[in-house]
Simulated scan of single mutants.
Amino acid sequence: MSIHQQVNDAIFLAEHNRHVGAFTLILLAIGASARKVFPEGTKKDHLAFKLFLGGRLRRILLYDYQPPEYSLSTGFTCVVGGKETDITDILYKYFRCSLAHEGKLATEVKFNSSQGNPNGYPQRPRGMAQLASWSEGEDGGKLTLDHIWIDILLEVIFHAPCNASEFGLSYFTLVPMQCIDESDFQQSFMINYEISPRMYYLLKEIVCELSPNFVLGNSESIWRSELERLSESRRISDALAELSRNKLLTSHGEFLPNTINALQEIAHSFERVPI
């Protein structure tokens, strides 16, 4: 069974209220995706799973495109088993392993809907929804993950560059023009525009998705329309909202002159090449 088939079957199960079955298939598809990036013999199963998932979730949940691309830490943690634990460890140990090897969820966790509508496919709203909750009990309490994780993890799989051929997509990266040292460029850029490394990499990702030629050949209003389209398609997380939160847009959601200059400078300094 291909990853594409697993995804299709998971969506079918979710639409018919078989959410645990859907989640099981999705976690298997994440393991298979991880093995494309880290072939057998390069990383142990749990490391491959968590490295692949951690890097993708940082982008989707926190809009963090900083290297490294694959990371054990997402920055999203929950208390389970009495200690603060990264979501990648939780998904691997308490969900993936328990479902795959025991056919049931671990006793420390539950998988329910907190959105008031437990039926059908759980569409993730924009922004940070309530992705997890903790409930006290005589058994010491349980961590509940929301059904929204089905949608989040399907996004991880669908938009992972390693799965591009499965879903008929293409992915690109930016490489500096000749005679440009990216380390020097980044340091100078961050000083000139007074931005953090995190915002530098987000701006780079925006230029990469739009393409340098598109940025240089169109107005900021056209950029915005295209970014909205890319956000709706989940191609890139809600970049406009993140730019706004970091005061790189006006109160009306328009690009500030400094932000326009920053995006254009990146477009002038990098070229887009296929991954």
Rank of each mutant, 00 (worst) to 15 (best):
G81E: 04
E226N: 13
L131Y: 11
G55H: 00
K110P: 05
I11H: 09
K44Q: 07
G168L: 14
T173Q: 15
S135H: 14
K93A: 10
A100V: 14
W149L: 00
S114L: 15
R56H: 09
A164S: 13
S114Y: 11
Y171P: 07
I157Y: 13
A10Y: 05
T74Y: 01
P125C: 07
L174R: 06
L53S: 10
F185T: 02
Y200S: 00
T107E: 15
E242Y: 10
L47P: 00
Q186H: 09
V79S: 06
A132P: 02
G31F: 02
R245K: 15
L153W: 03
S170P: 03
S231Q: 10
E271A: 12
K36H: 08
C78Q: 12
I275K: 11
E15Q: 13
Y92L: 00
D89I: 01
S183W: 11
K83F: 05
C208W: 05
Y121S: 09
H159Y: 15
I191Y: 13
R58V: 01
L25Q: 09
D45W: 05
I60P: 03
S231M: 05
E232V: 14
A10C: 12
W149H: 02
P67M: 04
S133N: 08
F189S: 11
D181N: 15
I195V: 06
L47K: 00
R59G: 03
A48D: 02
E209M: 12
